[in-house]
């Protein structure tokens, strides 16, 4: 298959599957006469998206703000923690288990507590989303910083490099692909964290995020609107992933295997 054909296939094959799926969904709902509060047909979801879209977008904006702020905090603080770990093995050994504990604690279980401790609702949701998102970055970047080629390390030693030089010229570039892989995972997790925390705790203010809208729609049996909100949510997740993927490819395209394969086809 030629490069162009392959690219077209990559775009159209999932699209065809999606259209087929939606068509059969629509058909089944009409044919079986399923009421819309059990399963709305895609056309009803589209209609709801059209009419409720503007107000849903406002809610999406809040969710998005929490997600992006949490992701940025995860990248900054997660990266800083990983750097700290790379400086001191003792620090890594003593603190890493606690990062794991934070990671395996279900956010649902502690979201309410965090809301109580952190009065400001936006900040509370941000903390929740950050807790979910920071671990992949810490864990990946720590591995990356410790993965510098042993012979290159010896070469730096031979030429009398300082610790700062080893970090700048060797450890950081080595860790970059690991960090970016962690960031891609964290992007999706930050969104999930933001939504889950809002499910549990609400926003406590005039502004509402998408999670509140989904709950609200389910209470009112406005199932098409619920689906519309869900659709927006997954669309957001996909866009975040694609943007982070693009960032990763841009930064690594000159040298890293993960970004090279396509250019050399």
């Amino acid at each position: 298959m030629s490069g162009l054909g392959q690219r077209a296939a990559r775009l159209f094959a999932p699209l065809v599957i999606g259209v087929l799926f939606l068509a059969s969904w629509e058909g089944v709902v009409w044919f079986e006469e399923i009421p819309p509060y059990i399963l709305p047909p895609p056309s009803a979801v589209a209609q709801s998206l059209w009419f409720d879209g503007p107000s849903l977008l406002g809610s999406l904006l809040l969710t998005l703000r929490i997600t992006l702020a949490a992701l940025a905090a995860a990248a900054l603080i997660g990266g800083a923690i990983a750097l700290l770990f790379s400086f001191s093995r003792i620090l890594e050994l003593s603190l890493f288990p606690y990062a794991v504990i934070l990671q395996v604690t279900p956010i649902v279980a502690i979201a309410a507590l965090i809301i109580i401790w952190v009065r400001e609702p936006f900040l509370a949701l941000l903390v929740c989303a950050w807790i979910v998102a920071f671990f992949p970055i810490v864990s990946n970047t720590t591995v990356g910083l410790n993965s510098a080629d042993r012979n290159l390390l010896m070469l730096f030693q031979l030429y009398g490099a300082s610790r700062t030089q080893v970090l700048l010229y060797l450890r950081l570039p080595t860790a970059l692909p690991y960090f970016l892989a962690g960031l891609r995972i964290s992007g999706g997790l930050a969104l999930i964290g933001a939504v889950v925390a809002e499910f549990v705790a609400g926003t406590g203010g005039a502004e509402t995020g998408l999670a509140t809208r989904i709950l609200e729609a389910s209470y009112r049996l406005a199932i098409p609107r619920m689906f519309a909100a869900l659709f927006l949510l997954s669309l957001t997740g996909i866009v975040i992933y694609l943007l982070l993927d693009l960032l990763s490819r841009r930064l690594l395209r000159r040298w890293h295997e993960s970004a090279l394969a396509e250019e050399e086809e």
Binding site: D149, N151, L152, M154, L155, Y169, P173, R254, W255
Partner: peptide, 10 residues
């Protein structure tokens, strides 16, 4: 070294 031991990003 036995391997070229180059920095792939440079």
């Amino acid at each position: 070294f036995q391997d070229p031991t180059l920095m792939p990003w440079s």
